[in-house]
Nucleic acid binder design. Sequence first.
DNA 1: CAAACATATACCCATATGGGAATGCGTCAA
DNA 2: TTGACGCATTCCCATATGGGTATATGTTTG
Lengths: 120, 120
Amino acid sequence: MARAATTTDAFNAVAEPRRREILDALAGGELAVGDLVELLGLAQPQVSKHLRVLREVGLVDVRDDGRHRLYRVNGAPLRAVHDWVSQYERLWNERFDLMDDVLDELGTRPPTDAGTGQGD
Amino acid sequence: MARAATTTDAFNAVAEPRRREILDALAGGELAVGDLVELLGLAQPQVSKHLRVLREVGLVDVRDDGRHRLYRVNGAPLRAVHDWVSQYERLWNERFDLMDDVLDELGTRPPTDAGTGQGD
DNA sequence: CAAACATATACCCATATGGGAATGCGTCAA
DNA sequence: TTGACGCATTCCCATATGGGTATATGTTTG
């Protein structure tokens, strides 16, 4: 069993720092493999392999251009990641925690709106 | 070198589906290991191991309660993930493109960016 | 056609992984 | 104290990984 394949989903794909670097590099626009090799300072085969993973989860698209292959980002698969992570936003946003504390202390969680006059 | 350790950061920690399930389960509030074992249908040692990973990246906190250990989520480390992914939001959110179009037509684009719009 | 260039693959290897089973250890009950 | 309970840790193993090196495939140029 070991670990799930990195080619499974976007979560796994972007868990690898190099692949995030690749996506960041491609965020500026299409790039050929050779460009990425230079930018990342990685060996060409490694870059190609990472690109393959990214392609398999749909995070990048390719386009043939002579003897070059131009890669570009496709952020769609990141949406799942974003959606999942967003559910926890309140857990790192101090403002929410403070509000919770206050409401807890008051022991009177209002059914709809607190009288403290804060309605975001 | 193989893959980076999963205990390295939140990206790696949440790449594992089981760990996301654990966090989701804990999102409702503190839970003991045994509760998670039941909820996830995993063996106890496996749950403990996943919890350890989550603890090492700071995604959960523990509290001793007699012979139980209550775990709770700490979303802070997810902020880095959220921030990184958010950079790509415009790439999957059509609304941004539409908004770009509208602003273009109105000719009232705020002075922040005068990009010719990177279409597809 | 041959040679040079740009990428993708194949192969090898050290390592991290996650599950399974057994066990260690602290806590509570009798 | 003994025993049951709850959880963490250890050991074993099959597997996926990512880097390194060599090579295959496809394209442009001479």
